[in-house]
Every structure is written in structure tokens, then in C-alpha cells.
Computed example of a mutant assay.
Amino acid sequence: MKTQYKIILVAVVAALAVGGKILLSHKQAPAPVSNVRPASLSVTAVTPLRVLWPQTVPAQGAIAAWQESIVSTEIGGLRIAQVLVDVGSQVKRGQELATLSQESVTANVHKQEAAVAQAKASLAQAKSDAERARVVSSSGALSEQKIQEYLIAEETAQANLASAQAALESARIDLNRTHILAPDDGVISSRTASVGTVVNAGTELFKMVRQNRLEWRAEVAAPQLGGVQAGQKAVVMLPQGGEVSGKVRMVAPTLSADTRTALVYVDLPHGSPAKAGMYAEGRLELGQREALTLPISAVVLRDGMNYVFEIGQGDLIDQRQVKTRRREGDRVEIVSGLSPQARVAATGGAFLNQGDRVNVVPDQLQNAKQ
């Protein structure tokens, strides 16, 4: 009986030992590890789209008069009698702007008229004497010397008349110069004339913007100057708001030695809200050019650099630095750093990093935009 109990006890101990080894082996066995990273974000994928965009050159510069005429006096020592226009007055070519006192000039005209009348009388007398000398020259009644004196006196009288007539014409010109006239159509931009002022010849009385024409003198850097040509469209953004469209008239033949920029002269339309003296920004439109574009939401700015997040094999993210240029609406041009066939995360780039795995979901709205 005791032998039977011993056999049973040994069997139980053996069974417990085997069971313990089995449990120990199960406890120490490591769990299987998955090498697949979970998706960090669900994103929609877009590919770059080629579109025709207007090529523009940004610029800034002053708005100035196309040509500013200085109206001054041509005769001196006279008093301003009337001033007929003021700053802002619209004037026509030949319109009277001011008048100078005419008393002394009118008296001089009368004096020269009298001198002409006297010269005419002298000429008539000289012609009569010369004619008689010619009649009697063959009879010998007058000496040859006397005849020559009469003929010379006639020529002298004719010269004196011509001189008197020229002096009269000069006096009349001076009389006309007492009327200060507009040299062209335009608007008065400055006035220094005041009634009662005695002016000298050449004294500035008015400044005027010829033909009301203004221009934008855009400053363009040398690398961007090659595509700018006369006739191209330009858009000027005024300081007070709003835009004015103009046309490039000419490009300066030289660059500034100080700024290394060239002036591009842009004609602005008549009646625009632009004013001479404004400083404005704008752009020159050089025509259309193909651009590789992405939605703006696909480009993320980090540390001063632009990045996009390309979706590679296995939906793993490849962070790529790109260079951008123009923006139109909700799209931006990609200049370099990205293949045209690349798949890019359209949104959520701010939460993505190199090597992240994403879950790509379809987006019908995004596909429609492309």
C-alpha cells in the first residue's frame, strides 16, 4: 500500500514539474512585433497641375506728369494786371492765363506807327526826286553826281521804312506778349503769379500738366527688365486703394548708377484717380506663361522654407523643399523641387513629418478643382 502511494506521489510531482516548464516557456516567449507603422493622418492626394498664368513683374515708383510746362513771361518790367486761372484749372491751348499792364507797350506801338508813317513820307519824297533825276539824266541838266545822290536817297528811304516797319512789328509782338497764353491743353499744377507784381523776362508764373497726362515711373531691376516692352499692360495699386490700368510707353535706355534699376514709363488713362506725386506699387504684365501649380494648402512654411509632402510607396511621406513664385487665387506656382507626376498631400501638412504613414482618401471636390 505504501509502495502504491509512493508511485502516485512521484507521478504527481512529475506532472507538476512538466506543467511548470510549459507555463514558464509560455510566459517567456516574446509577442510578435509588427513592422508596419500605423497611419498618422488621413489625407487627400493631389498632383501638380499645369496652367497658363499671366507673367508679371512687380515694381514700384512715383506717379508724375508726362510733361510739365513752365509758363513764364517773355517781356520784363511790366506789372501783372490780371490772373485768370488758379491751381486745378483746366485750360485749352491758346487760352489767356494772365495779362500784364499794356500802357507803356501800347505807347511804344503808337510811336513806331508814327515812325513808319514818317518813313513812308520820306520815301515818297525820295522816289519823286529820283524819278525826276532819271528823266533828265540824258539831257545833261543834272550832273552825274547829283543824279546818284537822288538814287541813293531813294534806297536809303526804302531801308528806313523797312526798319521802322520792323520796329513796329516788334512793338506789336511785345503788346501780344502782355497776354500770357497756355502753350497746350492741360491743367494748372502751380501758380506763382500775383496781381500787382512787376515781373522780369523769364519769370515763372504757372506750371501745367500737358494734356492732363500722367505716367507711372516704375523702377525695375536689371534681371527682370528683359521681358518688358512697349505696349504691355501695367496695373498700378494706388495708395488710397483701387487699381489703375496703364500701358508701357517706353523703357529707359540706361539704369541708375545708385539703385541699379531702370525706369519703365507707363501711361495712365485720363481721368484716373491717380495724382502726380503719389508713390505706388504695381505690376507689369508680360503675357501668359505655363506654370506648375499646387493648392496653397499643400505648401507649408517651416523655418522660412516652403515644403510639400509627397506621398510615396506604401503611403509614406517624403518631405520635399520647394521653391515657389506666383500665386493666383487658391493656387501657387512650384518652380523647383517637385516632379510633375508626384502625389502630394493636399492638406494637413502642418501635422506631417518625414517618414509618416498616411491614409489616402479620395476627395471629389479636390479632384474637381484640378
Rank of each mutant, 00 (worst) to 15 (best):
A346K: 08
V344A: 09
G19L: 11
S34A: 15
V198T: 15
K27Q: 11
E154N: 01
L151T: 11
A291S: 09
L100D: 00
L123T: 07
A39R: 02
V109A: 08
V116F: 01
V332Y: 01
A98L: 03
N200T: 14
L238A: 08
M208L: 15
L24T: 08
A15L: 15
F206S: 02
A346C: 07
I22T: 08
A167S: 14
T156M: 08
R283G: 11
R343E: 10
A115D: 03
A39T: 09
Q341E: 09
V43M: 01
Q102I: 11
P48F: 00
T47N: 09
Q229D: 09
P273F: 09
L52A: 12
N367H: 12
L142S: 04
I147E: 05
V322G: 07
R331I: 15
S72V: 02
K2V: 08
Q229P: 01
V85S: 02
I311F: 08
G241P: 06
V187Q: 07
V344T: 06
Q60P: 02
Y279S: 11
V199E: 01
I70A: 11
T47P: 04
E144T: 07
A159L: 15
L78P: 00
A115T: 01
Q366Y: 12
G348I: 01
A64D: 12
G76W: 03
K21Y: 11
N359H: 13
Y265T: 13
I317C: 02
L268F: 06
V187W: 02
Q240G: 12
A218S: 08
A221R: 02
A167Q: 14
G76A: 10
Q145F: 06
A222G: 10
A230I: 01
R283D: 15
K146V: 06
Q366I: 14
A346S: 10
V264Y: 00
R326E: 15
S122V: 03
R172Y: 05
V91P: 03
A193C: 11
A274D: 08
L225W: 02
P38S: 02
E103W: 03
D258S: 13
L181C: 04
A62H: 05
K233T: 14
Q288W: 09
Q232D: 04
V358H: 01
Q211Y: 12
